[in-house]
Design a protein around this nucleic acid. Structure first.
Length: 267
DNA sequence: GACCAGGAATTGG
DNA sequence: CCAATTCATGGT
C-alpha cells in the first residue's frame, strides 16, 4: 500500500462529480477501473492511501500534480464560483484515458449517471477482460478494436446510442487521440465532431476530461441552468453559452464548469 | 433556427 | 402506477 500527501483534494467529490463513472465505494475504499487497471484508494484528511497502481499513475490520473491554488484564486473573483469553490474545495479534473472517456460520454448523452454506469459495466462485461482485485470483481474497459459486434452492443441497454458507440469504435485508435493533443483546441474539437454521436457537449467533455484542454466548457442542462440563472439574461443557444464560458474564464473555463456543475447538481 | 425521433432507465408525483 | 426527466445528436 502506498500513501500520498494531498491538499486541495477531495476524492469522493472528484470521483462523484459526473466526470467519471467506473468506480464503486466499498468498505471505505473507492475501487476504480480505468482502461485495463484496477486500483483502490481511501482518503483520510490530506493523506491518500492507495493500492493497485504506482504513485506516478495515481498522481497523474487524479490530477494531484496540478496546482489548484492559482486556479481557485482566480476563479474565486467570481461570486457564484466563490461559493461553489468554498463548498467543493477539493474538486479536481481527472486525467482520463481518451477512448474510455469517449465511450463514457457517448453513453452519457440524454441519459443519467446510474444508467451510464450500467451501460459501461455491461460493455466491459461483454467486451472487456475479467479481473479481480482485492475481492472486487470487475471487467477492464475494452479498446476500440474489441467493440466489433453491434448486436452485442445493443444488449448493453444503450438504445439508439449503440450505433454511435459501434461506429465511433470502428473509426478511432489510441494513436489518433494522441495526435489531438498537439492540435489547438478548435482543431482538436473539429476532429472529434467528425465522429458519429459526438456533438459540441460530448466533444468538450472528451477534450477537458482526457486531453488536457482546460479551456473546454461543456454545456449540459445543469450548466445551462447555472448560466441562465446567474450570468446571461437573453436567450442564447447552447453553442453561444459554451463560447460565453470560454470567453469569460479562458484556460480555466473547464475548471469553472466543474465547480459550477457539481454545486448546481447537489443544490 | 425550430422541431422531433432515437431507447432505456431512473426519478417524481 | 404512470408521467416526466435524464451530463444531446442528427436529421428534417
Amino acid at each position: 500500500m502506498g500513501v500520498l500527501d494531498c491538499s486541495d483534494f477531495d476524492l469522493a467529490n472528484t470521483l462523484g462529480s459526473g466526470q467519471f463513472f467506473r468506480y464503486e465505494q466499498r468498505q471505505g475504499w473507492y475501487y476504480v477501473v480505468t482502461k485495463n487497471k484496477v486500483f483502490r484508494a481511501r482518503q483520510e484528511g490530506n493523506k491518500l492511501y492507495y493500492e493497485g497502481v504506482s504513485a506516478r499513475f495515481i498522481t497523474h490520473f487524479l490530477g494531484l500534480d496540478n496546482n489548484y491554488s492559482i486556479i481557485k484564486q482566480r476563479l474565486k473573483q467570481d461570486p457564484v464560483l466563490a461559493r461553489a469553490i468554498q463548498q467543493y474545495s477539493g474538486l479536481r479534473i481527472l486525467r482520463q484515458d481518451p477512448w474510455e472517456c469517449t465511450l463514457a460520454f457517448l453513453c452519457s448523452q440524454y441519459s443519467n449517471i446510474k444508467k451510464i454506469k450500467k451501460n459501461l459495466d455491461l460493455i466491459a462485461q461483454r467486451f472487456g477482460t475479467r479481473v479481480t482485485f482485492k475481492g472486487f470483481k470487475t471487467h477492464t474497459t475494452p479498446p476500440p478494436k474489441s467493440i466489433n459486434d453491434l448486436n452485442a452492443l445493443k444488449e448493453c441497454a444503450l438504445g439508439y446510442r449503440a450505433k454511435y458507440v459501434y461506429e465511433t469504435a470502428q473509426r478511432v485508435s489510441d494513436k489518433q487521440f494522441k495526435k489531438l493533443r498537439a492540435l489547438p483546441y478548435e482543431k482538436a474539437k473539429q476532429k472529434l465532431l467528425e465522429l458519429p454521436g459526438i456533438g459540441e457537449k460530448v466533444a468538450d467533455c472528451i477534450l477537458l476530461f482526457s486531453l488536457d484542454f482546460t479551456e473546454a466548457f461543456p454545456v449540459d442542462v445543469w450548466i445551462e441552468r447555472v448560466l441562465r440563472e446567474n450570468y446571461v439574461k437573453n436567450k442564447h443557444s447552447l453553442k453561444e453559452l459554451a463560447l460565453f464560458g470560454r470567453q469569460r474564464w479562458g484556460k480555466m473555463a473547464g475548471y469553472a464548469q466543474q465547480y459550477l456543475y457539481h454545486a448546481r447538481r447537489t443544490q
